[in-house]
Amino acid sequence: MARCSLCGAASSLISGELRVCLQCIRSRPAEALEMAMMAHRRCRAAYGLPEEIPQDPEGVRCSICANECRIPPGGMGYCGLRMNVDGELVGITPTQGKLSWYHDPLPTNCVGDWVCAGGTGAGYPKYAHSNGPEIGYMNLAVFFHACTFNCLYCQNWQFRYETLRPWTTDVQELVESVDERTSCICYFGGDPAPQLPFALRASRIALDSRSDILRICWETNGSMSHHLLEEMLELSLISGGCIKFDLKAMDENLHRALTGVSNRRTLENISAAAEMMDKREEPPLVIASTLLVPGYIDEDEVRGIAEFLASLNPRIPYTLPAFHPQFHMRDLPFTPRSLAMRCLDVARRAGLERVHVGNIHILTPG
């Protein structure tokens, strides 16, 4: 049981690393964020990553994502992939990336498998091999070893061990793993955002070499530059794939406390993506999700996100995955079933037509 450093409340729903409760984040944001940023600095220093988004006025600017780092001489960007060497931005390129991948049999435990072509046959026969789950086919799951956020509860935090290692993979090596039983490629991580030039190039090469179904999908925090989002949408739209936006929180202060950065670009990008949903009814082009972190993501937060999504398009599928204690928030409990059901109810009441609870096997009683 941890204690909030601001109000003194003690609870099992307060992160011992964050040291501040949800109520104080909402009512005393300036003080709460000061505490939260200390936690993020400690977390990032342990992996040799910049403790804050570099904003040197004389630094080299990187425009890949919303952080828009201005990297000082000899320094690196927030994601850890690009450096300022003699006034030039060097690091990951469209042909070299830091990633790993594997073939995952369909249907799979994907955020969107309950509405996507691989999990349901949506869009058959143009976008799916089967009028139902694509049994016998594979998803090429591509995991990128870097991220533009610093989520203290990261469910795949181990990628940080690889971010600064001096190795890269050639784009052609990834493309050669796309075989005749591969019906979709899904980029996740970490996050694809800091390595999108690589992922976009790989996707185009793979699509050009195929005459049958090959969907391009993304699981992302949505922090990429607008022009890169447009390219992602183009590839997903024509291939039958989707973009799955992970909306961590609606309240910007809470988002900063949990992830270290703002959610403004994410909300802008999903708004832009939603405008294209009418170009293809099935499978859905845009999917959203919010991890139900006990003590921090409650019904009010889900209601705000759901109302926002419904205002864009009430047909956006919205998944509420259960939380597994990880990384610097491993002292929090698993998501209780009661919280998941309340959040499911408020999301539906907000006007969303397709809402789903994910990872139900790890929900706890109560």
Rank of each mutant, 00 (worst) to 15 (best):
Arg41Leu: 07
Thr319Asp: 15
Val261Gln: 10
Arg330Gln: 14
Lys98Glu: 01
Thr182Pro: 00
Phe323Glu: 03
Asp298Gly: 12
Met341Ala: 07
Leu81Ser: 00
Glu282Ile: 14
Glu52Phe: 12
Thr93Val: 02
Trp114Ser: 11
Phe144Cys: 02
Pro54Leu: 06
Ala45Trp: 13
Leu332Met: 06
Leu344Phe: 13
Ile185Leu: 14
Asp179Phe: 13
Ser262Glu: 13
Asn67Ile: 03
Leu49Val: 06
Ser183Arg: 03
Ala310Gln: 09
Glu162Thr: 12
Pro333Met: 06
Leu332Thr: 09
Ala122Tyr: 02
Arg3Leu: 12
Tyr296Glu: 10
His129Val: 05
Pro333Gln: 04
Met224Leu: 14
Phe144Tyr: 10
Pro54Asp: 00
Ser11Glu: 09
Arg315Leu: 14
Pro333Ile: 02
Ile205Val: 09
Val357Glu: 09
Asn131Ala: 14
Ile305Leu: 09
His145Met: 06
Glu68Asp: 11
Cys151Glu: 09
Gly358Ser: 10
Lys244Asn: 13
Thr290Arg: 00
Asp331Glu: 02
Ile305Lys: 04
Glu231Leu: 10
Gly118His: 08
His356Lys: 05
Thr220Ser: 15
Arg82Ile: 01
Met232Asp: 09
Ser209Cys: 10
Ala66Leu: 06
Asn109Ile: 11
Glu180Pro: 08
Ala306Arg: 00
Arg41His: 08
Pro125Ser: 02
Val261Asp: 08
Glu17Phe: 10
Ala122Gln: 04
Val302Tyr: 07
Glu17Val: 10
Asn156Met: 11
Ala273Arg: 00
Asn84Lys: 00
Asn263Val: 13
Asp300Ala: 07
Pro133Glu: 06
Glu234Gln: 12
Ile287Ala: 04
Asn263Arg: 10
Phe159Met: 01
Gly16Gln: 10
Val171Gln: 01
Leu267Val: 07
Pro365Gln: 07
Leu13Gly: 05
Ser15Ile: 01
Glu51Ser: 13
Ser271Trp: 07
Ala39Gly: 07
Glu162Leu: 15
Asn156Asp: 14
Gly366Glu: 12
Asp179Trp: 11
Ala249Asn: 15
